[in-house]
Amino acid sequence: MALIVEVLDARSDDVRSWHRLAGEHLALGRAYDNDVVLDDPYVEAHHARIEPDGAGTFVLRDLGSVNGLVGGDGVRRPEFPTTAGTTVRVGHTIIRFQDSDVPPAAAIPDRRGQRTGARLPAWLDTPAAQLGISAGALVVILWLSWLGTYQRSATGDLTDLALGLMFALILWAGIWSVAGRVVTHRFRFLGHLAIAFAALAVLAIWGTVSEWFAFVAPDTALAKPLGIAVVLLLIGVLVAGHLALASAMTRRRRWTAAWITCLILLALGTAASLAERKPFSDVPQFAATLKPLPTSLLPTHRLASFSAVERDLQRQVDALARKTP
């Protein structure tokens, strides 16, 4: 067992230096002949001294300084015991006594080493592959958008879309990579950009798939929940992907964070749609999508089957009419 004197940083309370009491005395002051040199204009050249108290322990004793020794309670005293944990202000510098026998906390396991190799296949972790994914995704998005236009020239609209998307996603990837730089000390801009572009391209492809679904099977009760589930799944994957590059989280914690994000978005979305739900509208909502599918492949119903659909509509609007507006 030995007495340790810790000199603390005044702002953060972090320990700036440690000093072990090797012999019988330890001198503290601004002068260079002290054992502990304190670079503090409020400290005397020879300010205080640790020495035996004659009863087998040590005390910190004021050597007649101007500013003296002040305890944690703000009271100035000529002498302080050196029990572990005691803090004393010397000028503007705080010192704390410790016992060398106190066991330190266990080391924090470092998972930084596992990340790069385990989380991305090597071929994906190259700038070329990541730029390629971003560019490919942009082409897919623009192509699908172009298929949705019917003007003679859609160049202007598509250029606007491309520039808007690039601006937004560069900003998005920039935020994630700055966050990653802070947390993992690595700036992985192209990786984040590729993840964001890929997610958007999948969303665009899903949009086309769901249009075909709505065309072949209109008014299916499953369509809306399925659409919401796909979008939430995509957001989850997006968040988990960004976290893989920008954090030191384990896989389990990444996915937990992703699903929590989804749940929050689902709750917000539900709340927003409930708040916005208009009780009345004179604009009808219906599945208008048309697709060039040969009629031989399209499941159709006979005219006679439509009367049941009509009667169901009648029941619905009669129920609405019974409610007061």
Binding site: P218, F280, D282, P284, Q285, F286, T295, T300
Partner: peptide, 12 residues
């Protein structure tokens, strides 16, 4: 009047 309610079917 009430709001519209619509139904869509592919018929032949």
């Amino acid at each position: 009047v009430t709001s519209w309610r619509c139904a869509t079917r592919n018929l032949t």
